[in-house]
Design a protein around this nucleic acid. Structure first.
Lengths: 268, 268
DNA sequence: TGAATAGTGTCTGTGAGACAATATTAT
DNA sequence: ATAATATTGTCTCACAGACACTATTCA
């Protein structure tokens, strides 16, 4: 094939990429020394340095090689931010709107990764950055505010409800803001997925450090589930999932708290 | 490109197909006139008439065209068995093992469809057939028996549990039986998905006819969840999802039962 | 001392499991 | 009459929400 034929070929074939939604929890210190630091869900984004969407932020992604699975590609992508292989990774969804890439037919197989901040190595290059996520829901509108400290992205999505079932919906971008492709939708779907699984499984612990207080754990659940929980009830329900250690966190302007660790080697 | 170049090209590119797992509920009459007909989960399979896997059964599938989404392709596939567009259809998972097709790199984006038998038109061609599914679980082994009345497929799968979490597992084929590709795994993943959602959503109703008795509905739930339910408790929990009609089913050798219909236009 | 969080105990309502009891039909 | 399913009612137990109360620290 000569170059001309290759170019023509590009437009006739479908390219398939793995894209990874890397979520973690960030600590945001409070000015009041007594108050706990505020936990925020955060997502890792990359600054694009080529067309299309040059200079926009995007999810880390890679075209799937002919000799590797999408999962393997996703694991390779993960190596940009960690050399620890101990994280959660699962298939999320396929995003394949015909016009999602302005030039080619690019289909994205998305993956959701959950990792603890302590396992993450991000060099300070400006091209990789963690964005705190604020997700504000009003009726059928979802407002996403992504903030990395320097730049703030304001995105508005609409929930498209299918067939009268309030629980079954997809998203449509109403207003985008310097985020490439349909990645705003992928982020929204990831949050939805995480929220659904948070109360039915233990995946949240993948974003926790090895040792944590019940209060910190509760904060993370509150952030993900987007609602206040009662301390007493939370302790009860979480009790059989954690192991108390003899460590204690002190120096916080209030009663010290015991440190716990995740009970992941359950025998039942 | 000449033919030789095209052939070479095939081996270098990835093909992407939509494959649809069409589930429905079959009625299997009991010899005892008093007893209810036994409900079975069933899947629509197609007899392949070309290589690879010639003469094996497979899920209906189609290569995704460059100008349509996988969902659209899935809807086109659905038209082989219905001209009613009122069914449930959702993305299931991507299956992309490198060697799943013996010759090419074929990636399958699978969809789960749930439809009521009354909406289905299958011409009696031998190439399309409904198979009743028996799924027998023993520890980490899942045995699938697919039976269309003429042919019985016995498949054995192993659950591969990830990272000590009993709930998070995938499947590996131990013994296949005249089922093409990794479609046994897709069927197993579909059953798992259906089971998880059955108790948390109303998707089961997509496989019910317009009018049904509570007993029939309970049977379907028992079949999907693979456990016996208590009639009294079932009635209580299902009560707010169904509307009682003035119709009654009679002539069954026991007390007649009221017919209900799904309450899908919920106002909450 | 006071602000803030940690941690325990208890009451209450909801909802599921168990099971008893009654109803109704075709053969 | 009997087998089989339909339908209702009631008791109990587990669990989550609400909330009161105590504990402990640093500025």
């Amino acid at each position: 094939m000569n170059n001309k034929e290759m170019d023509a070929e590009k437009f006739k074939t479908i390219s398939l990429a793995s894209e990874v939604l890397i979520f973690s929890i960030s600590d945001n210190l409070n000015d009041n020394y007594r108050k706990l630091s505020k936990k925020k869900l955060s997502v890792l984004l990359i600054k694009r340095e080529k067309m299309p969407f040059n200079n926009s932020w995007c999810l880390p992604g890679k075209i799937i090689n002919i000799d590797e699975t999408g999962f393997e590609t996703a694991k390779n992508i993960m190596s940009i931010c960690t050399n620890d292989s101990n994280y959660y990774l699962e298939q999320l969804k396929v995003f394949d709107a015909v016009d999602r890439d302005p030039i080619f037919r690019l289909i994205s197989s998305s993956y959701l990764a959950l990792i603890s901040k302590e396992k993450i190595i991000v060099n300070n290059a400006k091209s990789v950055s963690w964005f705190n996520i604020d997700a504000i829901e009003n009726n059928d509108i979802l407002e996403l505010v992504l903030d990395n400290g320097n730049e703030k992205l304001n995105i508005i999505l609409e929930k498209i409800i299918k067939e009268n079932n309030q629980e079954d919906y997809s998203y449509k971008i109403i207003k985008n803001d310097n985020l490439a492709y349909d990645h705003a939708i992928i982020i929204a779907e990831g949050i939805k997925n995480l929220r659904e699984k948070a109360s039915k499984s233990d995946i949240i612990f993948n974003m926790m450090p090895e040792f944590f207080t019940i209060g910190e754990l509760q904060q993370v659940y509150e952030e993900i589930l987007n609602k206040k929980l009662l301390g007493s009830a939370f302790r009860r329900t979480i009790a059989n999932k954690v192991i108390e250690t003899d460590k204690t966190r002190i120096g916080e302007g209030h009663r010290p708290s015991k440190l716990f660790t995740y009970q992941n080697n359950k025998a039942n």
